[in-house]
């Protein structure tokens, strides 16, 4: 086990990796990375490396699970055994089952599910390397994979975590900050609809700190949202230029 750092914010107000409290980690996004999937995307956010693939809409088996008025969205969040310091068993943990559920519920409000009754769409998320904030990065990348699959959406979903470390509200927690910090608050947001589609928290925050944290998270989501749009443009607009 690595030893806990004594402080997470230095006298200059900078964090362990040199970031300011309201600064995101470097983010790299690529859309359309897997040949077999109907839609796919890849994200690197700090040391996080996550792949998402979408298969669907397709026929649902067994058929009795199909819904007469809408598509069923299924989601699997899974961490590779080598993605963390101590090997993680490949069997789905209770945490992964809960995260699969909340990620699905964060994506559902964005999709016009009623356009594809009696069908199913699968979202597969594989965390290849984890360094804190994987559920948020997963939502960010999965919503791009859905868009890449051509599934009609109200908006892209961008997600980002905030937290409290050494008494300061900071954006985009990395693993140490999440483990040692006083609070962790992942949030997913659709900017065009001003809609929060995922909100969880654990730790201890006063109502004032909570309001500050939510506004900071939304600011972070808006920045990520712009990067998502750029990634989509890079995939589809650049293809057009080649054709010309």
């Amino acid at each position: 086990m690595s030893s806990k750092p004594e402080r997470l914010i230095d006298e200059k107000g900078l964090r362990l990796d040199g970031r300011k409290p309201d600064e995101l980690r470097p983010i790299k996004i690529e859309v359309g990375v897997l040949a077999n999937a109907d839609g796919s995307a890849y994200i690197e956010q700090g040391k996080n490396k996550i792949l998402a693939a979408v298969y669907g809409p397709k026929e649902l088996h067994p058929k009795h699970l199909a819904l007469p008025d809408r598509m069923v969205l299924r989601c699997r969040y899974h961490m590779a055994p080598f993605s963390v310091q101590e090997r993680k068993s490949p069997a789905p943990s209770r945490r992964e089952i809960e995260l699969s559920k909340v990620i699905r519920e964060a994506l559902e409000p964005a999709i016009f599910l009623e356009y594809y009754p009696r069908t199913a769409t699968d979202v597969f998320i594989e965390v290849l390397q984890a360094d804190g904030g994987t559920r948020c990065a997963s939502i960010t990348v999965a919503s791009l994979a859905l868009a890449d699959a051509g599934i009609p959406m109200r908006d892209l979903v961008a997600a980002c975590s905030v937290g409290k470390v050494d008494g300061t509200i900071v954006l985009d927690l990395m693993d140490v900050e999440d483990k040692v910090g006083e609070a962790d608050l992942p949030l997913a947001y659709m900017p065009n609809l001003d809609a929060i589609t995922l909100l969880q928290m654990d730790g201890n925050l006063t109502p004032e700190e909570f309001e500050k944290a939510v506004s900071l998270a939304i600011e972070g989501c808006k920045k990520i949202y712009n990067m998502q749009r750029e990634a989509l443009k890079a995939r589809y607009v650049s293809v057009k230029e080649v054709e010309e």
């Binding site: 409000p109 608050l185 001003d194 929060i196 909100l199 928290m201 925050l205 006063t206 909570f210």
Partner: peptide, 19 residues
């Protein structure tokens, strides 16, 4: 009176004001 845990559930959303 401090907040120690939050969980949003279900396939809909909340606006920040509602939260």
């Amino acid at each position: 009176g401090n907040i120690c845990a939050i969980q949003k559930g279900g396939g809909g959303y909340f606006t920040p004001k509602q939260v």
